[in-house]
Amino acid sequence: TETAWISLVTALHLVLGLSAVLGLLLLRWQF
């Protein structure tokens, strides 16, 4: 169904966004 796909895509986007923010924070901490 479409709702399942939409929720799955939004979850993936949230995970990608969180990982990107965490990566930037880690880079700032290291340097």
Rank of each mutant, 00 (worst) to 15 (best):
T1I: 00
T1N: 00
T1S: 00
T1A: 00
E2V: 06
E2L: 06
E2R: 11
E2M: 04
E2K: 10
E2W: 02
E2S: 15
T3W: 15
T3H: 06
T3A: 06
T3M: 08
T3P: 04
T3G: 07
A4N: 13
A4E: 03
A4R: 15
A4W: 08
A4P: 07
A4Q: 05
A4V: 06
A4M: 13
W5K: 09
W5Q: 13
W5C: 01
W5D: 15
W5S: 15
W5A: 08
W5P: 13
W5I: 13
I6M: 07
I6D: 07
I6F: 03
I6K: 06
I6P: 14
I6L: 10
I6N: 03
S7L: 01
L8M: 02
L8W: 08
L8Q: 05
L8D: 15
L8P: 10
L8K: 08
L8V: 05
V9C: 14
V9A: 12
V9F: 13
V9K: 07
T10K: 05
T10R: 09
T10P: 04
T10M: 06
A11D: 04
A11E: 06
A11Y: 10
A11G: 07
A11V: 03
A11I: 12
A11R: 14
A11P: 12
A11T: 10
L12P: 09
L12I: 05
L12A: 14
L12W: 00
L12N: 10
L12R: 05
L12G: 08
L12S: 09
L12V: 06
H13P: 15
H13K: 07
H13V: 11
H13Y: 04
H13W: 12
H13G: 08
L14W: 07
L14V: 07
L14T: 08
L14N: 04
L14Y: 05
V15Y: 02
V15Q: 07
V15H: 10
V15W: 02
V15A: 00
V15T: 02
V15K: 02
V15F: 03
L16R: 04
L16V: 03
L16A: 09
G17Y: 07
G17Q: 15
G17V: 09
G17M: 10
G17L: 04
G17N: 01
G17P: 15
L18M: 04
L18W: 06
L18E: 08
L18D: 05
L18V: 05
L18A: 12
S19A: 05
S19P: 11
S19R: 05
S19M: 15
S19C: 02
S19W: 12
S19K: 01
S19F: 13
S19Q: 08
A20M: 12
A20D: 01
A20L: 07
A20P: 11
A20S: 14
A20F: 07
V21W: 05
V21N: 07
V21S: 09
V21C: 11
V21R: 12
V21F: 04
L22P: 01
L22I: 09
L22E: 07
L22G: 13
L22T: 14
L22S: 14
L22Y: 06
G23L: 06
G23K: 15
G23W: 12
L24T: 08
L24Y: 14
L24A: 14
L24Q: 02
L24H: 10
L25A: 13
L25Y: 11
L25T: 15
L25I: 03
L25E: 11
L25G: 14
L25V: 13
L25M: 03
L25K: 00
L25F: 12
L26S: 12
L26G: 15
L26M: 02
L26Y: 15
L26N: 08
L26V: 10
L26D: 14
L26T: 15
L27V: 06
L27Q: 08
L27A: 11
L27N: 09
L27C: 00
L27R: 11
L27M: 04
L27S: 12
L27T: 13
R28E: 02
R28W: 01
R28P: 12
R28T: 07
W29P: 01
W29I: 00
W29E: 01
W29K: 00
W29V: 00
W29D: 06
W29N: 00
Q30N: 08
Q30A: 11
Q30C: 11
Q30T: 02
F31Y: 00
